[in-house]
Amino acid sequence: MSSRTPETRATSLFMRYAILVLVALIFVFPLVFMLVSSLKPSLQLLSDTSSIRAFLPVGNISLDNYTASFARAPVALFIFNSIFITSVTVVLNLVICSMAGFSFAFLDWKGKDVMLSVVIATLIVPLETIAIPLLLVVNNLPWVGLHGIEWGWLNSYRVQIVPFLSDALTVFLFVQYFRDLPRDLIEAARIDGASWFQIYAKVIMPISGPVIATAAILRFLAMYNQYLWPLMVTQSEQYRPVMVGLQYFFQLNTDWGQVMAYLSMITVPVLAFYLALQRAFITSIASTGIKG
């Protein structure tokens, strides 16, 4: 039996909400600063940083930084490129990695455990260490285009997509999630005569929303934030994504207002994607927490 009075419970609740609001503000402040700063001239933006004005839309407010951003760089092209590359990669990555995860979780084949260990071990290899060999590989790959067989994949969308169609983290996420699903589901489907592909497509994937959302968000962020690889493989402006485009704004005299306007614009797709999948993402995190 609790000895807490209604007053102490109210105080406790108030404190809890106060802390939550404080934490929320800490997370929201950078976004507010970015949005508000994108509306201010650079000199005002810099002088406002030393006071609360940094978070308030006060002073000389306009959309000039947005107009200037479009004049400085092909912003729409960069955003399109990033969304296209990221979307295609995420969708194909989820298909490939979920199939791999299904195989590791449910199918019996020789060397499965060793292979899974090898896949997971690749988690410790950062892209930077294999970037140069990977560049040499893609630079010598054939492609059948409008002009017949061409050699080398540089300056294309495919060179930014294909190397990332599978990754160890996503495979691992699917394996972990699939292993915790009830085996009865699989056995019932097998008794009903379903093929392994039917089980994958019609039984397992429909109940894997949370892990799909989690993997999608993680892959989306990783792909959308790509910088080194696209920089190495896209010499033509036509294929550059947003993070390479961001560098257009860092000049000898950087205009911070324009930087903030550009960041605000390229953040919109990320926020929209996260908000669309947040419920499933939180469900996945929550369910991960109660396992074990």
Partner: peptide, 21 residues
């Protein structure tokens, strides 16, 4: 002419040199 952002330019040259481009 093909323009690169200044911050990324030297890295782009190095990568192109590796690729022979």
């Amino acid at each position: 002419l093909q323009a690169f952002p200044q911050i990324a330019y030297n890295d782009a040259i190095t990568a192109a040199a590796v690729a022979g481009k």
